[in-house]
């Protein structure tokens, strides 16, 4: 129950649903951090990727534990009326949009590569079956 000790003291006063969500999120974040570590160990991802994902999940953890931080950040970049958590949502949506776009582009490239392979095989098989026939 390390998680509980990590929480800021004033949170012990009101153990409510919000806190429950925090604990669950922290557990998930820790799990994901461990996973990033083990993936790095098995060399499934590069150090750069591991650091990036580690930072992302660490950031999520910090925001969950200290939501007030985001209010200060939001105020600093000029979002006076917005709550900090809104900023987090904006950024998250932007990141998701970007990732979806990248996925689409990559998917398209893969589709194209598959077609190239299929075409190559089709043309090659024709050659193998009767090399002299040019129809």
């Amino acid at each position: 129950m390390i998680v509980v000790f990590l929480l800021p003291t004033d949170y012990y006063l009101l153990f409510n649903y919000f806190m429950l969500i925090q604990i669950i999120t922290i557990i998930i974040v820790l799990f994901l951090l461990v996973r990033v570590g083990s993936q790095l160990k098995r060399k499934q991802i590069t150090l750069k990727e591991a650091l990036l994902w580690g930072l992302v999940w660490f950031g999520v953890g910090v925001v969950v534990l200290y939501p007030k931080l985001t209010d200060r950040l939001a105020a600093q970049i000029g979002l006076q009326s917005a709550k900090g958590i809104d900023l987090v949502v904006y950024l998250a949506v932007a990141v998701v949009f970007y990732l979806v776009f990248r996925l689409f582009v990559r998917l398209e490239k893969m589709e194209h590569d598959i077609t190239k392979i299929v075409r190559h095989v089709a043309l090659k098989n024709e050659k193998d079956s009767d090399p002299n026939d040019t129809n």
Partner: peptide, 18 residues
């Protein structure tokens, strides 16, 4: 006909390009 086979379905355009 001479037949070329795509072993996976790739679509109308892919077939014509082949």
């Amino acid at each position: 006909a001479k037949v070329l086979r795509h072993f996976v379905n790739r679509g109308y355009g892919a077939a014509l390009t082949t």
